[in-house]
Amino acid sequence: MLESFISLLSKWTIPFLVLFIPTFAYFKGVKVYEEFIVGAEEGFKIAIKLIPYLVAMLVAIGIFRNSGAMNIVVKAISPVISILGIPGEVLPLAIMRPLSGGGALGLATELINTFGPDSFIGRLASTMQGSSDTTFFVLTVYFGSVGISKYRHALWVGLIADLTSFIASIYIVNKIFG
């Protein structure tokens, strides 16, 4: 029931918006085609403006990850994590999540396939992956699009949110499925 509703919602929202907004605008007397073009013109500029920010951030994160430095950090934290009763298997995912969206999805997929989607670790990895965002990447893209390089406390807030969602995921998955 819930499953079919969610899949329906997720499949039909975009087609609905693409139908509804232009139709509504047309009946409001908007010259739909001409106005669309005016708005669309901005898209190219914004997307291109992101390049320097993205290259800077992705190269730094890439070097940190591919050199094996990230693995060293994971190994160093693992003992502390196991004391707290958190399965060490999900730690790389927690560390990767704010840095690299593709990398985190890869790790989550691997955990889900290795332990099974309906295992404790599979459910925990799913919840962790679904509940947090690629904070570094989002900040780079969003601030980059308007030429902002001074983030103030935005990064800390994002990382605190990621850490909180991680802890909350462990708590709730333990509670519901544990």
Partner: peptide
Amino acid sequence: IGLMTFWLGIMRLGEAA
């Protein structure tokens, strides 16, 4: 680029309406 262009076009219609 493609997505931005498309959705900003749709968004403009939403604003104008």
